[in-house]
Design a protein around this nucleic acid. Structure first.
Lengths: 144, 144
DNA sequence: TATTCACAGGATTTGGAGAACATCTTTTTT
DNA sequence: AAAAAAGATGTTCTCCAAATCCTGTGAATA
């Protein structure tokens, strides 16, 4: 469904948000450990997220990553996905055709459109805060 | 969404079905040309589909691939997907966790489950015949 | 029965995403 | 100002899906 990068991006953002709620700034290492991801690779993804303004990075000793409290309930999953995987999930043809659209649809175009639209709605109506709720009370997990 | 193999598999099956309705048996080359896919790679995928009984292959001169008329409206998209990609699409975790299930769900588990269930329903309720209809009257396409 | 056509299937190569490594830059602390 | 902590960036390595190659086998037909 999503690329590995995107999966890590979502998990990392969720973890940072949980810690930000406790006013903790977290380091790259801590994040990688918490979401069980390769450190160096995670660094690149966090950079992408920081550049697009989804998370904030602070350099230097006692630096790390954080998210402004006011942003936690505003960041939508769709933003993270777009930042990392682009909008191919919404636009891409189910059968991989380059020019698949309403004018020249592939045989499964409309059936897939329905699914994709629902996926889009879901991603646009789910905020990072939604993800933190289950994590805080231990009902959901980021590892294993 | 699907692997390239799977995309080719669906397109090939649809094409073979259209031709089978006209009582034409089609060769590997013709199929590859019709769906704009690499010949050798397509051969492998057709082998898989033939082995699982979704399509029939006939060796020798004037051989090729075909589908029994009585099967065209019975073969479901889900069968093709399972034969090539397995059932990872239904089971796989949205965030790539190995052990993501109702007992230890990831933060997006239930939201994704809904989408996946709908995808499953769609694939199970769409037959190869459904795909052939648009192709025959020129409303849908397999190339470009 | 020899030839040719066409699929079967094992072995191999290629390309790109994912992962790891090394180095440079910035910021904080002392 | 120097050292330490941490992010930024470029390069390399690895692995698997994607694609190809080559040889084997079966069927038609002359």
């Amino acid at each position: 469904m999503f690329s590995k990068s995107c999966e890590y991006g979502i998990k990392a953002t969720a973890y940072i948000a949980v810690q930000a709620k406790n006013s903790n700034r977290v380091s790259l290492k801590e994040i990688a450990k918490a979401i069980d991801s390769p450190v160096a690779f995670t660094a690149k993804i966090l950079q992408q997220l920081a550049r697009t303004g989804i998370i904030d990075s602070v350099q230097g000793a006692s630096g790390g990553f954080e998210i402004r409290h006011s942003q936690i309930n505003k960041i939508k999953l769709s933003q993270i996905v777009s930042a990392i995987d682009g909008d191919n999930i919404y636009k891409g043809c189910g059968l991989g055709l380059n020019a698949c659209n309403a004018k020249k649809p592939c045989p499964v175009h409309y059936k897939f459109q329905k699914i994709r639209d629902e996926l889009k709605d879901m991603l646009e109506s789910t905020t990072v805060e939604d993800l933190t709720l289950g994590l805080k009370n231990g009902h959901t997990y980021l590892k294993r």
